[in-house]
Design a protein around this nucleic acid. Structure first.
Length: 397
RNA sequence: GGUCCCAUCGUCUAGUGGCCUAGGACGUCGGCCUCUCACGCCGAUAACACGGGUUCGAGUCCCGUUGGGAUCACCA
């Protein structure tokens, strides 16, 4: 994420917030309230019992008494009329002022509340547009009131819908809400993440796949929808795969290196890096996330002996091993090029009266110890003659 | 519960009164390709929540119902 200017610490601006509160006190748009928490609680209890809205009505609102007691500073909000939030996403939203209470601006210990602090900070920083989740929609009305009490221009608001979990329930710590670093740890490309998230609730016609540059160029508030979207890992995965395929090899290798470093993995040797680069094309098509890329790279990242997994062991039966032995001796004299190896093995299969797959699968199992991998011909070229033959000999015994 | 907001395929969405027999993408299901897994390609599946209006004409406008969501602190 990029931003302009320096980060501002809200905590360090407490004196400025207090100054703003004093300004409102002087202007008569705020007042000192000496009510205790108990009194407020009692008021609310009674209001609830009488089925009135439990909005606290402070008896100190119009009082001129100034007892020597702890107090909070409250906004003297208008009791009638309405407050309009002209939201760029949600439209024109009207709140009746009688439904809003006199919110606390300064706590009894003199510290500012969030509501006051954001208004003052945004104003001082020259913030023109406030774009945030629609859980802040009602806060927009309150902040509008504070801005007006201070005599300041109200910023442009835009409240974008929230994102729900795959089951449609709201996201929470306990329920699927993950920080961006967790998606990074799962190996999704950042560009894919931006693409996917941008597409959630926002659209640019039928464009599904786009770069960050395109997103920046195309973005505007107007096409943002108003209803919450569900998070869909399947689609994220598909998009991530597309981004992996669209990223050039050198750049992708940098992403992989950064990923491995973040996971505290063993750094690659120079040789591994160069093999990675030359194999990248065949790796790319097979992965949606970086760990899958790493997994497919196992045939050159791992080292002998390659103990067969269950699937490979099943493929490498006694018959296959015998066949592999005959193939191995033939390969000793083979010219090591992609075209020639393919021709050589096809010819061998024909001589054995086997379909290519019947030769390629055991070969794959021998070379990688697995049932799934990139193309055997590609791997043989990448591995080179010596290593290939050594791996074949490993399984022949 | 009060206040506010929302509602098109399973999911993300296009759609701004006639171009909609509702389009795209993901998913799913078939098929092709094929040395495995993928990738790629072809095809299929599937939606305007419901009920009233307004209008010559409604997915598009209005009202209601239902269903979702947000918020109601001396938290941020």
């Amino acid at each position: 994420m990029d931003w302009d200017g320096d980060a501002v610490s809200q905590f360090e601006r407490v004196p400025r917030h207090q100054e703003a509160a004093q300004q409102m006190l002087d202007a008569g748009t705020a007042y000192k309230c000496y009510a205790t928490k108990e009194e407020i609680e009692a008021f609310r209890e009674q209001a609830r019992a009488e089925k009135r809205p439990p909005l606290f009505q402070s008896p100190w609102r119009d009082s001129t008494d100034m007892p020597d007691l702890p107090f909070v500073v409250r906004l003297k909000a208008p009791k009638s009329g309405e407050t309009v939030v002209d939201d760029q996403v949600q439209g024109r939203i009207t709140f009746q002022n009688e439904t809003m209470d006199d919110l606390v601006l300064l706590r009894s210990d003199g510290t500012p509340t969030y509501m006051l602090a954001v208004v003052v900070d945004d104003h001082d920083m020259g913030v023109t547009h406030v774009i945030r989740g629609d859980d802040h929609l009602t806060n927009a009305a309150r902040q509008t009131l504070i801005s007006q009490a201070l005599g300041w221009e109200v910023p442009v608001f835009a409240h974008v819908p929230m994102i729900h979990g795959e089951d449609g329930k709201k996201l929470s710590k306990r329920h699927g809400a993950l920080g961006v670093e967790e998606y990074r740890d799962m190996g999704y490309l950042a560009a894919a993440m931006r693409n996917y998230l941008a597409r959630l609730g926002w659209s640019h016609g039928n464009d599904e796949f786009f770069t960050t540059e395109q997103a920046i160029e195309w973005f505007s508030l107007e096409p943002i929808g108003k209803s919450p979207a569900r998070f869909d890992f399947k689609k994220l995965g598909n998009l991530s795969g597309q981004h992996i395929r669209a990223t050039d090899n050198a750049e992708l290798l940098e992403e992989i290196i950064a990923y491995v470093a973040a996971q505290n993995g063993e750094p690659f040797t120079e040789n591994q890096k160069s093999v990675f680069l030359s194999s990248m094309d065949s790796l790319k098509a097979r992965a949606k996330v970086i760990p899958e890329l790493l997994d497919m790279a196992y045939f050159f990242l791992g080292s002998r002996p390659f103990v067969p997994d269950a699937k490979a062991a099943q493929i490498l039966d006694i018959v296959s091993r015998g066949m592999l032995n005959r193939l191995t001796s033939r390969l000793r004299d083979a010219t090591w090029s992609l075209e020639n190896l393919e021709a050589e093995i096809r010819d061998f299969a024909e001589g054995e009266e086997l379909k290519l797959g019947k030769v390629a699968q055991p070969l794959r199992a021998a070379l990688t110890g697995r049932g799934v991998s990139p193309s055997v011909f590609d791997m043989m070229v990448t591995l080179g003659k010596e290593e290939t033959l050594a791996r074949l000999e490993d399984v022949s015994t």
